[in-house]
Amino acid sequence: MEPAAAMTLRHAILGIIAQKPSTGFELLREFDAGHSVIWPAPQNEVYRVLRQLKDEGLAEIVAEGARGSRTYAATDAGRAELGAWLAAPSDYTLRYEPVLKACFLDQTDPQSRIARARQDLAFFQEQLRVIERTARQKAGQPGPVREDARAMAVALYTALSGWARAIVEEGGSEP
């Protein structure tokens, strides 16, 4: 069995090409850390997974374009694999460094604790701005909206922002 991270990227790519046939370049934009940290992926991994999905019969090339670009779509077997993954139990293990650091903030001095919370708050708020900006840019465009994922990400970053804001305010300063 593959590690959970590899399986997640594999199914994320399969999900995207099931929603809308896409080139590797289009997939790279979906996984760009500049748009969101939900699931960034390096270029070599995206192309490796695409080749693997094709070799396994879960994806097929439906068009070839300029400079060797290929558009991939999910096959019926790929859609069945995606459906099985969606129905399977989720891995709820939270591996997020800010949460781990929060476990040990009591091991540092109050100023460092507040500084850490300020940095986290700035990051979480920036992620909310990125999500909002991306939603505005995609509004009215053809293609998948992924509103459920967007709503979950907004709720997550809003909650994390609330935690960080409380630490900062507890220290007597506004961010």
Rank of each mutant, 00 (worst) to 15 (best):
W163R: 11
G143H: 12
E170R: 09
A4E: 13
F124P: 07
G15P: 05
Q43P: 09
E170Y: 02
R79M: 07
L105V: 12
F124H: 15
I16L: 15
A6N: 01
I13D: 04
G162Q: 03
Q125F: 02
A155K: 07
A115G: 10
Y157H: 15
A12M: 11
E126K: 14
R79I: 03
A4D: 10
L86M: 08
P110L: 01
L53Y: 03
P89Q: 04
Q127W: 10
V130S: 13
I38Q: 12
L27V: 05
D76W: 02
A139W: 09
L94C: 05
L50Q: 01
G143S: 11
Y72T: 03
A80G: 04
L9M: 07
A149W: 12
V46N: 06
A74I: 10
P21N: 03
D148L: 12
D32M: 06
D32R: 10
P89L: 08
E174L: 13
L28S: 08
A33N: 06
L128F: 10
S112T: 13
A4S: 12
S90P: 10
G34C: 03
L121S: 04
R136T: 07
K20N: 12
R133P: 00
D109L: 05
S161V: 03
L100V: 14
L128W: 10
P142H: 09
G171P: 01
P110M: 01
R51V: 03
Q43H: 08
E30M: 13
G172P: 00
T75Q: 07
A151K: 14
E81P: 01
D148G: 09
E64M: 08
I114Q: 14
P142C: 04
D106W: 14
Q137D: 13
L27D: 06
R51D: 14
I114Y: 00
G83H: 06
I13S: 07
T108P: 00
L121H: 13
I114G: 01
E26G: 15
P110Q: 01
A66P: 09
M152V: 10
I114R: 15
W85N: 07
S90D: 14
R116E: 14
R29F: 07
W163L: 12
A166P: 02
Q111W: 11
R133Y: 05
R67D: 08
E60G: 04
T23D: 07
